[in-house]
């Protein structure tokens, strides 16, 4: 479904992505792991067209490198940014409406369903998004992207700074997304959720993929974890 081949990206003169290769198949949950600053977030931003890509990015066998963000989103690629960029002055419901595409009738997600899954959001449907707690904002941000009915959703550090109970909710939502046949690229620093739900994992270091495997194989590879993941 997503094929990234020899992807390079620059911030000014610094060479951030130095030939990234990975792929995601339909309905698959894939995690992209690594320490801070190795280029995980830049990888998803580059796929989304926020950072100028060099190399090949194919989504559903169509080259998307060089396309604009909104075109890529409309092809069915969803992105939940790390900074939980909700619109603080708009209500929870309006935030969700913004995620909808113009043709929302065929979407596998509806606003009422989201409120059913997350009663906290439902109770605050008409409240400004800015007053929600960090965990609620994260949920809102994920639900908002889902409203656009993506076939692949890229989620950047959804559990960062959240209480363990909320982290569990995030994991449940990720499972629900996968159950509905949506592929997931989960970008994480910690292993906890990633090991539990992923089909496959990639580990990044210095702007490249340094390891590819399954949760089991990564647990067995003590050297990889020590060199690239543990702090």
């Amino acid at each position: 479904m997503l094929n990234v081949t020899n992807l390079h990206a620059y911030y000014g003169k610094s060479h951030i992505l130095q030939g990234v290769n990975f792929n995601i198949k339909e309905g698959e949950i894939v995690s992209l792991l690594g320490r801070n600053g190795v280029g995980r977030s830049t990888t998803v931003k580059t796929i989304m067209g926020e950072v100028e890509p060099q190399g090949s990015i194919q989504f559903k066998n169509i080259e998307i490198a060089g396309k604009k963000s909104f075109e890529i989103a409309n092809m069915g690629l969803g992105y939940v940014p790390e900074n939980r960029d909700i619109f603080p002055t708009l209500t929870v419901r309006q935030n969700l409406l913004l995620g909808q595409k113009s043709d929302a009738s065929s979407s596998r997600w509806s606003i009422e369903e989201m409120f059913g899954m997350f009663p906290n959001l439902g109770e605050r449907a008409e409240v400004a998004g800015g007053v929600l707690s960090g965990g609620e904002q994260q949920m809102l941000c994920m639900c908002r992207t889902l409203m656009g009915d993506p076939e692949l959703i890229m989620i950047d550090e959804p559990t960062e700074g959240l209480a363990p109970k909320i982290v569990e909710q995030v994991a449940e939502l990720l499972q629900e997304i996968a159950n509905r046949g949506v592929a997931i690229l989960l970008v994480e620093q910690k292993l906890s959720i990633a090991l539990k739900i992923s089909h496959r994992l990639y580990v990044m270091g210095h702007g490249q993929i340094v390891y590819e495997g399954t949760p089991d194989s990564l647990m067995a590879a003590d050297d990889v974890r020590a060199e690239w993941l543990e702090v």
């Binding site: 989304m48 926020e50 604009k68 963000s69 909104f70 989103a73 409309n74 992105y79 940014p81 960029d85 619109f87 002055t89 708009l90 309006q94 409406l97 913004l98 995620g99 595409k101 908002r144 992207t145 656009g148």
Partner: peptide
């Protein structure tokens, strides 16, 4: 809906673009 998109696009153009709005 268009008004909400405009409000959001003024403050968060990247995010709005990532949600598929031109």
């Amino acid at each position: 809906r268009i008004g909400i998109i405009i409000q959001a696009a003024i403050t968060h153009p990247h995010t709005v673009s990532n949600l598929g709005h031109n």
